[in-house]
Amino acid sequence: MGPTQIILFILIFFAVVILVSSFVTIQQGTVGVVTIFGKYRRVLAPGLNFKIPLIEQIYNRISIQNRSVELEFQAVTVDQANVYFKAMLLYSVLDQQEETIKNVAFKFVDDRNLMQALIRTVEGSIRAFVATKKQADVLILRRDIVEHVKEQLDNILESWGYHLQDLQLNDITFDEVIMRSMSQVVASNNLKAAAENEGQALLITKTKGAEAEGNAIKIAAEAERQAAQLRGQGIALFRQEVAKGMTVAAKEMQQADMDTSVILFTMWTEAIKHFSENSKGNVIFLDGSADGMQRTMKEMMSLNQLNLDTLEKRGK
């Protein structure tokens, strides 16, 4: 091989190397940052790109996909209680504009320094917020903590070329002593609520029972009142019918020129017969003396006379 051939071979080799180095492939989900002699030149989109060989260099390949990082840190409340957080941070490049990509590429030396600044900023924001709250309020302020961190970090991260997608506080715990006391408070509150519920149930049961008993008494009293009324009406009707019967019998006996006192004597004997048949006793005491008989006959005659007077008034 002569000198001319060797030179030609070298030229072809360099031409191939230059041609190959003139094209670069950028993977999907990333962009390429090109510099010339160390100075920013332009951004390469995903796919096959042309660059000036030996002059333009790929300074960095930046992922525009979402990234996540887990955090574990401690904060202290205003009442000096230690709070332990476990969180998950989700962030990404703000957009694919040239200025944003320049910030992402040149703000930090490398990703390690970026992560350190990002984590310390999030922890500092949460610690500052928790330091103004009491231990008893921290658990119910989970959403407020997240909103506070996002509000504080949005401007800072945008100046770095990033955007905070989400912050999740997966676990919030306290010292063991505080956890035990919180469990005791919850248990005592549950016992108190159970006792109150049991008391309310007992009160409702007693109240319903009293209402039912009162209603039963009212119903029984009403039934007794109606029964008494019906009994009174029955007795009144009975007496009215007896009076009518006695009036008719007295008129007939008077027309037949008979002594109407026989009616009273008959009623008296019927009453004695009723007593003897329906009474539970074995002895009926009657005044059988002459004076008693005479007094009874006078009373019967008086009643008879009263009956006759009544009949005469009705006849008139």
Rank of each mutant, 00 (worst) to 15 (best):
Y84P: 00
Q74V: 02
V76I: 11
A87K: 15
N82W: 15
E70K: 14
A81E: 05
L44Y: 00
F37M: 08
Y84H: 00
I52H: 00
A81C: 08
N60I: 07
N82L: 11
I58V: 07
E70C: 10
Q74D: 05
V33R: 06
K86C: 05
G47W: 06
V78C: 02
L71T: 10
I58F: 00
Q80L: 15
M88D: 05
Y40C: 03
Q74P: 09
V43D: 06
Q57Y: 13
V33H: 09
V33K: 00
L71K: 08
R42F: 13
V83Y: 02
V34L: 05
T77D: 01
Q57G: 10
V69P: 05
S68I: 06
K86W: 08
I52R: 04
Y91D: 04
E72I: 01
Y40K: 14
R42N: 12
R67G: 09
P46K: 04
L54K: 14
M88G: 14
E56P: 00
E56R: 01
P53E: 04
F85N: 09
I62A: 00
L71Y: 05
R42S: 12
A81N: 10
M88R: 12
K51Y: 10
M88F: 12
Q80W: 12
Y40H: 14
V43G: 04
V69S: 15
N82R: 09
E56M: 03
E56L: 10
G47I: 12
Q65L: 15
F50Y: 11
F73Y: 06
R61D: 05
L71R: 04
G38F: 15
Q65H: 14
V34I: 14
V69H: 06
V76R: 14
F50C: 12
I55V: 06
I36H: 08
Y59K: 03
I52G: 01
K39Y: 13
Y59R: 07
S68P: 15
M88C: 06
V69D: 02
N49Y: 01
K86D: 15
N82H: 14
I55T: 14
V78E: 02
E56S: 09
M88A: 05
I55G: 05
F50V: 01
N60E: 11
F73K: 01
Y59D: 08
V69M: 04
I58Q: 02
Y40G: 04
I58Y: 08
N66V: 13
G32M: 12
K86Y: 02
L54D: 08
Y84S: 10
A81Q: 06
S63M: 13
L89C: 05
L89M: 03
Q65P: 10
A87R: 04
F85T: 03
L89F: 08
S68M: 11
R61M: 05
Y91N: 07
E56H: 08
P46W: 10
Y40R: 04
I64R: 07
I55E: 00
L54A: 15
N82E: 03
E56Q: 12
P46I: 12
L54N: 07
E56C: 02
D79W: 11
K86T: 00
